[in-house]
């Protein structure tokens, strides 16, 4: 999949990222985004899928979305192996700032758990959310600068608005380190933390408020 995307986007659309390997550029974004899309999808269906259990035994319901996010997290750690292989093979090289990367991963995880809470709650009340979210994820893939560079967008307002995408924050943070060997600015640290915690708090509050009503709707 990644190979196909790399070939298509670098050769056919002639997207190039000045100064850095396009393959490494693509991989950095894709590993993060794939984690988010897989984990949020599984988390969304987790409550509905485990209704049999919820109806029979008492257990804290937040376990379901949370466990899915952790479970996909293990897959994510495995995808770091090809990522580092690409980093080394393309000659991108390592630097000491790599020790800051777990910060971006942690923020992404918190953000995903928050979205998992939110989506699983919505999915209980609106069953066709599964299909709608599939479309949302596709749109989100194209709106997040994964396959292209945000500087390629001519329209300045659009580029500015796209920076509010939380996933952009994490991808950008990781790229700054992996590709450009720079320490992320304090603003980038703040952007990651604020978006992650913000969504987490909203998701957790919605989930908490609605979890007692799940039983009526399944």
């Amino acid at each position: 999949m990644m190979t196909v995307m790399a070939i298509v986007f670098s050769n056919i659309f002639r997207i190039s990222t000045p100064g850095v390997s396009y393959l490494a550029y693509l991989m950095t974004g894709l590993t993060l985004f794939n984690y988010y899309s897989e984990a949020s999808n599984l988390a969304m269906s987790s409550v509905v899928a485990n209704f049999g259990l919820i109806n029979k035994v008492y257990m804290p319901k937040y376990i379901f979305p949370l466990s899915k996010c952790l479970f996909v997290g293990i897959n994510f750690l495995l995808t770091l192996i090809p990522l580092y292989a690409v980093i080394l093979l393309t000659g991108t090289g390592l630097c000491w700032q790599h020790i800051l990367l777990p910060y971006a991963y942690l923020c992404l995880f918190i953000f995903t758990v928050g979205m998992g809470f939110l989506l699983s709650t919505i999915a209980v009340f609106l069953r066709d959310m599964f299909y709608i979210y599939g479309i949302v994820i596709t749109i989100w893939t194209y709106l997040t600068p994964i396959m292209y560079d945000i500087n390629m967008i001519g329209n300045k307002t659009l580029a500015f608005l796209m920076k509010f995408n939380p996933l952009y924050q994490y991808v950008n943070f990781a790229r700054e380190i992996i590709l450009y060997h720079r320490t992320p600015t304090p603003w980038m640290f703040a952007g990651c933390a604020v978006s992650a915690l913000g969504i987490f708090v909203i998701g957790a509050l919605v989930f908490r408020k609605k979890q007692d009503k799940f039983i009526y709707y399944i």
Binding site: F125, L126, R127, I132, Y216, Y217
Partner: peptide, 13 residues
């Protein structure tokens, strides 16, 4: 209270 007919209508469509 249970709502016996509830599953009939909860999709956005």
């Amino acid at each position: 209270m249970f709502n016996l007919g509830i599953e009939k209508g909860f999709s956005i469509k």
